[in-house]
Nucleic acid binder design. Structure first.
Length: 1281
RNA sequence: GGGCGAGUAGCUCAGUUGGCUAGAGCGUUCGCCUUACACGCGAAAUGUCGUGGGUUCGAGUCCCUCCUCGCCUACCA
């Protein structure tokens, strides 16, 4: 192997290391190991990036996080699957390709549309161009992910339009269609006039726009003797009690004024609405208005949707009431609210626009037939039409000779208007025929809400969507987590926090509790008594899951239950009961008095499965480790709770006594999804509250074509018999489904008339045969030209990538042998990692679909029949409840982690238009993938977005950020520390040998082992809670601060002839590489290659997780140092060393001692003894040549340590006494300041009386210490004087 | 308008149930090419924790007021 270079150069290693992983097939997941029970599953699905563009820094962050989780779990022995893939992004990709073609001057989509019309398969030709584009970008994205080091299972890469995903889309559409959850509706959609397609609500972006309110006058008319155009005069209104009518001349024609921001839509008005409570309503009842220029006579209707103007009772301050005139123009075909009014009053809908949003009388406005005016507006764009309408109104009056124009006034107004996220033009509410998915159905929306863990749900949501369904007798979709097999390795060491605080606020949680015997041990009989006491309260105040009574301590896992008042039993009360119950009995038998137990330690089990299993394992192994038995099952005082107990929660996981009480039972597939950070659960819930049915059709070519055939506007069809035979055969054998527009049953009678076929929709379960197509075409049917919203296939991602609905077909088409094992092994997945903006749509839709399609019986029984789509856009209130035969499937992931958003230094989004984007590949080139990953990981917290100051490198024209230096520096440090350590091993012999007993090691070694142990715990906790900054900080501090700054510096003089120390260095470095690997895979793997051949001597308690293979670091086991390696004695002692060294260094720095100069420390007594025992730590770290008890001769400097004064000499040839005095005086001031604060606190009677005793005690000790320091420093100062 | 979040050192951010003298990295200052690392080592300086009140023996942390910023959402009368 080559000697190591002076600095780490990532480009020399990254591609080679990557190839090594690929050659080792290291990222390949084996689902059968999960199904055989050989390993627990851990699975992450990549949120498939759009094939429209290369990845940006946000993707880099997201994928780094996923890779960290995946790599850590792989090393922890889980069978891990990270499924990669890309998304076809229908509208975005189609637009991109079109733009590209135009730029190149090649035929673009308009030309292909022409071809298509000419019968030349323009569609097919265009789609194949998009396909080429997709191939190009898919390759680019894949390359980027690989450069970042993403350890995806690349053999399983999917694309949302590949044949496996397509099969899922077709099946899903068919099932939903058959179940009445997909319907056709003529409604207002968000129309993008440039792309000329419908958009879903989430594809519309709101933008602030400076507009105006236009106040338009519509003349009032009434019908007399068949003439509907007779003017109504103010005089007439006045007699009918119209307020203020007498302000106008009696004989003039009256008008009503409407306010609008969109005057150009007035041609589509079909009514004017007024609130029935409006004092003017009675006067105009039954009257009409005449639309100026157009001449249409439309009714005045009454609807309480209309806001009253302030003048007539509207609420002052309400923006609408302030602006309103009380009369509202109603344009059902161009405004969603007007649409609803139109529905209520059965108004005409007149669409006045062409698909490009120009004014047209060819798309629903039969102007000439009606004899209406307004031809001047035809062909005008929306903007032109607005100007023209305003101009025309302004030029006219209500009637000849009237005062004032039809345009009463214009008021500037700022408001936000929906814009297409793709073409950025204002979205037009446009009447059109589209397909909808009825997501408001309880089976979809309701189950998406119920998927959320009750702890994160709001009261309102729990009421609206109560947890449903009886207890679930069969599987839950989770792997059974009955306690793991005894043979599995000892789990992660536990971190137990002492908590004395209000756990009664944390009702319904499961706890891990430990309490110890004050002195002595328990006899066997006494252990029985404790067990009895525990179970005495089981099912009464708590559910006991597992107890193990050791001779000197007790562990238990339990869940407090609700008590009558609605709260939960406080854990303190429970413990008190159990402890006093047993203490009394045992003391009585022993004839003893006094306390038996110490305080308990307890830790809330915040998370379900992993932590539960970890602690469960820990408890089972406890007697084995204490050598009380050989196998976990053999210890007589380990008892599980009664398995048959009703109160046990799902899967024996979190017994979750929920608010209706435990008696109701818990639906095992509800309540499993957790958001991290938890606050996003609320966003998720609220989004569902406002949900409307989802428009799933798009007028595009790039996407999954809608598998529905229909027929309209063609000649009547003669051969009904043959056709209906064919149709009924298809219906009977289930390969197609037919629905009528009005959702009536499809009968033979229905088919009697060829014209009725126009109301028929036929959906095929799989691709229709040529024969089918022939029959359909003869009958005049054509396939729907539209495609599905891209999110429809994205929503199926957890299913489609795993081979649903037909894994054996997926196996055949992909050649992947174990495809059939994927879904059972890995769905539900472990976590979805995504950005904020995706919470709503994607998480929700995946949850809906996963739960729907994996339900025990998604169709038919158990659900109430669903009526055809309601005309209202809102949920119709259907409450179909699942039954036992019809259990919804699991949520597709257990956790949803929402990561931070990356912004530039000014807090703006990174975007192309601002030019503030940073390309991950540029950073990888300049700093290396590991540096980028570490920096991103270190910067991402749960509360703040990531601000990344962007700098432009003028020489390359590329954007970068100085932040990435942090990661690069760390890599370089790691590289050099390795070089140094490897150099050490050339001098210090490493050889295998008997396991090392850590107690026999030197202070510094025991300290280092303790630090690694603690850091490992920190890392485990951080990763479990998705605290990536904490993870980064933990390894940074461990490696740089503890290992490099102190450990390596300390062992320099001793390691050469201390083989045990060499073994510790070897093991510790190994552990550090492993802990760092998830975030910095390339460099750690590179270094591991150099360390791996060196023999490793076992240190007792320092073990590594068992994994599938160990030849590469990425497959090697995670460190699992035993808790016993935490060495408080060593930590405390080394803390004294550090403190002494720091103090001496400070003196050296202030006295300007040359770094190389070796000084003399004058210390006697106990400190001298300590220093001798620690030798040569102080000497090495503080640059001390000799330690002597003698008083210094000549010049010396003094310092205070632990309340005593010591001196240093040989600092320099001549000392600066002034500097020395300054230093001491400053120190004295600091001490005095601290003392004042502490004295103040102690002299406050409230503090001494009310603060916890141990704090007061601590404060007193502090004061005592400070007083000693003060005296010592004072003495030194006096001597100087 | 409604919701969520943020405001802590010059910059970017931590700060678990209220409790040792509020921390880290970068930057700054001083001294160092000291047996790997100047992408480094040693030392130092830097804070009215947005504002004003309240609860408490004790508040960066809990409650209320106000100010500033960000995101989401509603609003085309």
């Amino acid at each position: 192997m080559q000697p190591m270079s002076k600095a780490y150069n990532p480009s020399e290693h990254e591609s080679r290391v990557w190839q090594k992983w690929i050659d080792a097939n290291a990222f390949h997941a084996d689902p059968d190991r999960v199904l055989n029970g050989d390993a627990r599953p851990y699975c992450v699905l990549i949120p498939p990036p759009n094939v429209t563009a290369a990845l940006h820094l946000g993707h880099a962050l997201n994928n780094s996080i996923q890779d960290i989780l995946i790599r850590a779990h792989r090393m922890k022995g889980y069978e891990t699957l990270w499924m990669p893939g890309t998304d076809h992004a229908g509208i975005a990709t189609q637009t991109m390709v079109d733009k590209r073609l135009k730029e190149r001057g090649e035929p673009a989509i308009a030309d292909y549309k022409q071809k298509e019309l000419a019968g030349e398969d323009g569609r097919g030709q265009f789609v194949s161009l998009v396909q080429d584009f997709k191939d190009e970008f898919e390759a680019r994205i894949t390359d980027q992910l690989m450069k970042m080091g993403c350890s995806c299972d690349w053999d399983r890469q999917r694309f949302t339009m590949d044949d496996i995903c397509a099969r899922a889309v077709r099946e899903a559409f068919f099932q939903l269609f058959k179940d009445g959850l997909i319907y056709r509706g003529k409604r207002l959609v968000n129309w993008d006039p440039v792309s000329q397609t419908a958009l879903a609500d989430d594809e519309v972006e709101m933008e602030e726009v400076d507009g105006h309110f236009y106040y338009l006058r519509y003349p009032l008319v009434k019908e007399i003797e068949g003439d509907p155009t007779v003017p109504v005069t103010w005089g007439e209104l006045a007699t009918r009690g119209y307020p203020d009518a007498d302000n106008h001349p009696d004989d003039e024609q009256a008008w009503v004024t409407v306010a609008t921001t969109r005057p150009e839509t007035y041609m589509g008005d079909t009514a004017v609405a007024v609130n029935p409570k409006d004092p003017r309503a009675g006067a105009v009842r039954g009257m009409h208005v005449m639309l100026p220029i157009v001449g249409r006579i439309i009714p005045i209707i009454e609807d309480d949707y209309v806001v009253l103007p302030v003048k007539y009772g509207g609420e002052p301050g309400d923006a609408k009431a302030e602006m309103s005139t009380g009369f509202l123009k109603v344009t059902p075909a161009h405004d969603p609210n007007d649409y609803m009014i139109g529905q209520r009053h059965d108004l005409e809908m007149i669409n006045i626009m062409a698909p490009d949003a120009s004014i047209s009388d060819q798309h629903g406005w039969d102007r000439e037939e009606r004899g209406e005016g307004g031809h001047v507006f035809l062909g005008k764009s929306r903007e032109e039409a607005r100007e023209l309408v305003v101009k025309e109104f302004n030029a006219r009056t209500v009637a000849e000779g009237s005062e004032g124009s039809l345009l009463e006034k214009m008021v500037p107004h700022k408001h936000s208007v929906g814009h297409s996220y793709r073409s950025h033009v204002p979205v037009e509410p446009y009447l059109s025929d589209q397909w909808y998915c009825k997501v408001t159905d309880d089976r979809l929306r309701g189950n998406a809400q119920r998927a959320l863990t009750p702890e994160q749900r709001t009261e309102a949501s729990l009421q609206a969507w109560p947890e449903s369904a009886p207890t679930c007798p069969r599987g839950t979709g989770f792997q059974p987590v009955s306690p793991p097999s005894p043979s599995s390795s000892i789990p992660d060491a536990l971190t137990i926090h002492q908590r004395h605080l209000p756990h009664w606020q944390l009702g319904g949680s499961t706890y891990f509790v430990t309490f110890r015997v004050e002195t002595g041990t328990l006899s066997e009989k006494e252990r029985d008594q404790v067990l009895d006491a525990c179970f005495h309260f089981d099912g009464d105040r708590a559910t006991i899951r597992l107890v193990t009574v050791m001779p000197d301590h007790v562990h238990m896992i339990l869940t407090p239950l609700e008590h009558e008042s609605g709260g939960y039993w406080p854990l303190q009360d429970l413990m008190h009961s159990i402890k006093s119950f047993t203490a009394n009995a045992i003391n009585r038998d022993r004839g003893a008095t006094g306390p038996l137990w110490q305080d308990e330690y307890f830790d809330r089990l915040l998370r379900g499965q992993d932590e539960f299993v970890e602690k469960w394992n820990y408890m089972l192994m406890n007697p084995v480790k204490a050598e009380l038995c050989e196998q976990p099952g053999e210890y007589a005082w380990t008892k599980r709770g009664e398995p048959g107990q009703r109160r046990r929660g799902r899967d024996g996981l979190e017994a979750r006594p929920t608010r209706g009480g435990v008696e109701k039972g818990v639906c095992s597939t509800d309540g499993t999804m957790h958001f991290y950070p938890a606050r996003y659960a609320k966003t998720y819930e609220t989004w569902h509250d406002n949900l409307r049915d989802w428009c799933i059709s798009r007028q595009l070519w790039w996407g999954h074509r809608i598998p529905v055939w229909s027929r309209s506007g063609v000649a009547p069809f003669e051969q009904f018999d043959q056709f209906s035979d064919w149709l009924f055969d298809g219906l009977t054998d289930g390969r197609l489904h037919a629905r009528r527009r009005d959702d009536e049953e499809v009968t033979r009678e229905f088919l009697q008339s060829g014209e009725q076929l126009d109301d028929l929709f036929i959906c095929f379960k799989s691709e229709p045969t040529l024969e089918d197509i022939r029959i359909l075409e003869e009958a005049g049917f054509t396939q729907d030209p539209d495609v599905l919203d891209t999110w429809f296939s994205s929503a199926l991602w957890p299913l489609s990538t795993m081979g649903w609905p037909d894994a054996s077909a997926a196996k055949d088409s992909s050649g992947i042998e174990d495809f059939e094992s994927l879904l059972p092994a890995f769905n539900p997945t472990s976590v979805l990692t995504t950005a904020r903006e995706i919470i709503t749509l994607w998480v929700s839709r995946m949850t809906m679909f996963n739960r729907y399609f994996l339900s025990t019986n998604p169709r038919g029984t158990g659900f109430q029949p669903v009526t055809p789509p309601p005309s209202s856009l809102q949920d119709d209130g259907l409450e179909a409840r699942p039954t036992e035969e019809n259990m919804p499937g699991p949520a597709p992931f257990k956790d949803v982690f929402i990561h931070a958003m990356i912004q530039d230094g000014e807090g703006r989004k990174m975007s192309k238009s601002l030019g503030n984007g940073v390309d991950p590949l540029d950073i990888i080139d300049s700093h290396g993938a590991d540096a980028m990953r570490f920096t991103l990981c270190q910067m991402t917290t749960q509360t703040q977005d990531v601000r990344m100051p962007v700098e432009r490198d003028e020489s390359t024209g590329k954007n970068t950020s100085p932040k990435f230096d942090l990661g690069r520096n760390l890599c370089n440090k790691l590289w050099n520390a390795s070089k140094f350590a490897l150099g050490m091993f050339e001098k210090a012999e490493l050889k295998p040998g008997l396991p090392i007993n850590p107690e026999e090691l030197t202070l510094i070694d025991r300290w280092m082992l303790s630090r690694v142990t603690e850091a490992t715990n920190k890392v485990n906790t951080a990763l479990r809670n998705y605290m990536f900054k904490d993870y980064a900080d933990a390894i940074y501090d461990l490696f740089w601060r503890d290992f490099c700054d102190w450990y390596l510096e300390s062992i320099k003089p001793t390691i050469g002839d201390n083989p045990e120390q060499a073994a510790v260095l070897r093991t510790v470095f190994d552990a550090i590489l492993r802990l760092m690997h998830p975030v910095m895979p390339f460099i750690t793997e590179t270094l591991f290659e150099r360390f791996e051949p060196l023999p490793m001597r076992e240190i007792e308690g320092f073990t590594f997780e068992q994994t599938k293979a160990t030849d590469t670091l990425c497959l090697s086991g995670w460190p699992t140092p035993a808790d016993e390696l935490r060495d408080e004695v060593a930590e405390e002692a080394y803390e004294r060393v550090r403190s002494l060294v720091t103090t001496i260094r400070e003196v050296r720095a202030t006295a300007q001692v040359k770094p190389k100069r070796q000084i003399v420390l004058h210390a006697g007594g106990e400190l001298a003894a300590d220093i001798a025992r620690w030798s040569p730590l102080i000497e090495t770290l503080a640059g001390v040549e000799t330690v002597t008890a003698d008083e210094p001769e000549g010049q010396s400097a003094s310092f205070t340590f632990e309340g005593a004064e010591y001196r240093l000499s040989n600092l320099a040839d001549a000392l600066d006494a002034g500097a020395e005095r300054d230093r001491l005086e400053k120190e004295l001031a600091t001490i005095e300041k601290s003392m004042a604060g502490i004295k103040g606190r102690l002299s406050n009677p409230g503090y001494v009386d009310k603060a916890p005793a141990h704090l007061v005690e601590q404060t007193r000790n502090q004061l005592a210490q400070l007083e000693k320091d003060h005296a010592a420093t004072k003495a030194a100062l006096d001597k100087l004087a």
